[in-house]
């Protein structure tokens, strides 16, 4: 079994209104040294694969087919094999 953790974030050029609102909230709370806040998405996926190489390919396929919209989002991931 493999365990992938996927972090999705907006591309630098894309406005993130939620991040802006969170930044404003934090600033009102007194955290006044914040330069920027970006909100992203986080996924944990457990799945079976023949080996690490196949697991990597599968995970990237899943990410690019559904988890992100490549118009506006980028991603990074880490992947490990789980002990049985």
């Amino acid at each position: 079994m493999y365990f992938g953790r996927v972090y999705v974030s907006y591309k630098q050029s894309v406005l993130d209104p939620q991040g802006e609102v969170i930044k404003s909230g934090l600033t009102h709370m007194g955290f006044n040294k914040i330069e920027s806040v970006k909100q992203g998405k986080y996924f944990e996926i457990k799945f079976a694969a023949a080996d690490m190489e196949q697991a990597k390919q599968e995970l990237v396929k899943m990410i690019e087919a559904l988890l992100i919209n490549a118009n506006t989002e980028t991603y990074r991931y880490d992947l490990k094999e789980l002990e049985d």
């Binding site: 894309v14 406005l15 209104p17 919209n69 118009n71």
Partner: peptide, 16 residues
């Protein structure tokens, strides 16, 4: 747009 029949994407309004 998500299906690729039209270009681009619809995102959260600029003002919350």
């Amino acid at each position: 747009t998500e299906a690729g029949l039209l270009p681009g994407q619809l995102m959260q309004n600029e003002h919350p």
